[in-house]
Every structure is written in structure tokens, then in C-alpha cells.
Amino acid sequence: MFEMEVRGMTVDKLLRRWPAALGVLVAVGTVLGVEHGGQIASVVAASGFVYLAAVAIGRPGAAWAAFGVTFVLVGLSLRAGFDAVLWICVAAAGLAVLGALRAGVRPVWSLPLQSAAMLVLGAAALLAVRADHLAAGVIVSVALFAHAAWDVWHHRTERVVTRSFAEFCGVLDVLVGVGLLVVTLTR
């Protein structure tokens, strides 16, 4: 593609890192202005939702579309006081039912595994919304760090979601988790 080099890296190699760059951009936008971990608990629910959506629909690329939906919901949650966690969890239950109806489309382990992950992440998000400042910040950060490990596993195995989405989500989860810990421990 491009042969120009920037400090030892070709432009082509840099362009292949667009998911990480997008993850940084979305993470910064998410953490700016956050005062309480409960404010971004919806990010935890969204992280499970997008993987469940990809499995239920049977297309790894569906994670990007599901992210688009959750991006709007999380944005409403941050800017308009909308409780996105509950709506994401309800939508996830619907996706699990849809996935069960399409049971022959994927490996048998996939839907139960992603449903269990969504259940854990949804419960953590619901708990964080109702917790005090310190507990909410820790719950959300730990959940995001755990999901980042989930992202790495999916990136390496190339299962459930596209590699680009797993890379994006891993960067997003780590940076939001770190940013939230800083906010939580300094306020």
C-alpha cells in the first residue's frame, strides 16, 4: 500500500492499528467529565452485549453494529441521565432468546458462554449503578479489566467477534478502567 515510513513504521502498519486508535478516542470521550463509576456502568453492560449480539446473530461483524447501538445508549446515559444499563440488559435477554432459537448456527458452547459473560457483566453494571462512589469505581474498573482479558482471548482465537473489534474493545476497556480508577481514587 504505502511505503512511506514514520519513525521506523510504514504507514501501512500504522493504518492497521485503526481499531486501537479508535479505542483510545472513544475511551477519552467516555472518561472526560466522569465523576462517579456508576455514571459509566453502562459501558460494562455494553461490553457483554456486543459479544452476545455477534453470537446471537451469527456474524462476528455484528459486534460493530451492536457497539453502535450501545454507543448511543451510553451517550444518552452520560449526557441525559438515561439509565442505559437496564435497557442494555433487557435487550441482551432478547438476544439470548434469539440466539437460542438459532441454535444450529454456531458452536454449541458459544451462546451459553457469551450469555454467562453478559449475566456477570450485567450484574456488575447493575450493582455499580446503585453503589457509592468508591465501590462503583472499583466494580466498573475491575469488570472492564476482566473484559479486556476476554477481548485478548477473542483476538488471539479469532472467535465470536472480528479481530478489529476485539482490539478496539480491549484498548477501550483498559483505558476506561484506568481512567475511572484515577477518577475514583483522586476524588
Results as ranks from 00 to 15, higher is better:
residue 92 A to G: 11
residue 48 G to F: 09
residue 113 L to P: 05
residue 111 L to E: 02
residue 82 F to V: 04
residue 186 T to R: 15
residue 35 E to G: 15
residue 51 Y to E: 01
residue 43 V to M: 13
residue 163 R to G: 10
residue 3 E to K: 12
residue 179 G to D: 04
residue 103 A to H: 15
residue 151 D to I: 03
residue 10 T to R: 11
residue 75 G to W: 09
residue 127 L to N: 03
residue 166 A to F: 07
residue 182 V to F: 02
residue 146 A to P: 00
residue 124 A to E: 06
residue 29 G to T: 00
residue 140 V to Q: 00
residue 14 L to D: 05
residue 108 V to E: 12
residue 115 S to W: 14
residue 147 H to I: 02
residue 30 T to K: 14
residue 101 L to N: 09
residue 95 L to P: 06
residue 38 G to Y: 13
residue 34 V to T: 09
residue 42 S to A: 15
residue 180 L to F: 11
residue 180 L to M: 06
residue 104 G to S: 14
residue 33 G to H: 09
residue 13 K to W: 08
residue 12 D to V: 04
residue 87 W to M: 10
residue 55 V to R: 09
residue 17 R to W: 11
residue 58 G to N: 06
residue 97 V to Q: 13
residue 116 A to G: 15
residue 103 A to F: 15
residue 43 V to C: 12
residue 30 T to P: 03
residue 77 S to E: 12
residue 179 G to Y: 09
residue 145 F to K: 06
residue 52 L to H: 04
residue 7 R to Q: 06
residue 45 A to V: 01
residue 183 V to C: 04
residue 180 L to Y: 05
residue 37 G to D: 06
residue 5 E to N: 09
residue 135 A to V: 04
residue 160 V to F: 03
residue 38 G to I: 09
residue 21 A to C: 08
residue 66 A to D: 11
residue 20 A to L: 12
residue 166 A to G: 04
residue 16 R to K: 13
residue 58 G to D: 02
residue 30 T to I: 10
residue 139 I to N: 07
residue 161 V to N: 05
residue 48 G to T: 00
residue 47 S to A: 14
residue 144 L to Q: 01
residue 92 A to N: 05
residue 178 V to K: 13
residue 101 L to C: 06
residue 40 I to G: 06
residue 53 A to D: 04
residue 83 D to E: 11
residue 77 S to L: 08
residue 17 R to P: 03
residue 106 R to L: 12
residue 145 F to G: 00
residue 185 L to S: 11
residue 74 V to A: 08
residue 72 V to L: 14
residue 73 L to S: 00
residue 48 G to V: 02
residue 150 W to A: 03
residue 55 V to Y: 11
residue 17 R to E: 11
residue 48 G to P: 00
residue 112 P to V: 10
residue 175 L to V: 04
residue 185 L to P: 14
residue 30 T to W: 10
residue 101 L to T: 12
residue 106 R to W: 11
residue 158 E to I: 01
residue 53 A to N: 08
residue 38 G to D: 10
residue 157 T to M: 06
residue 105 V to P: 02
residue 141 S to G: 03
residue 110 S to G: 06
residue 89 C to E: 07
residue 10 T to W: 01
residue 6 V to P: 13
residue 104 G to E: 08
residue 130 R to L: 07
residue 104 G to I: 02
residue 139 I to E: 01
residue 124 A to L: 14
residue 63 A to Q: 03
residue 97 V to C: 07
residue 19 P to N: 05
residue 103 A to P: 07
residue 56 A to K: 04
residue 42 S to P: 05
residue 107 P to G: 09
residue 123 A to Q: 02
residue 101 L to Q: 08
residue 187 R to G: 02
residue 94 G to L: 04
residue 137 G to S: 01
residue 1 M to G: 13
residue 163 R to N: 00
residue 106 R to C: 03
residue 79 R to F: 15
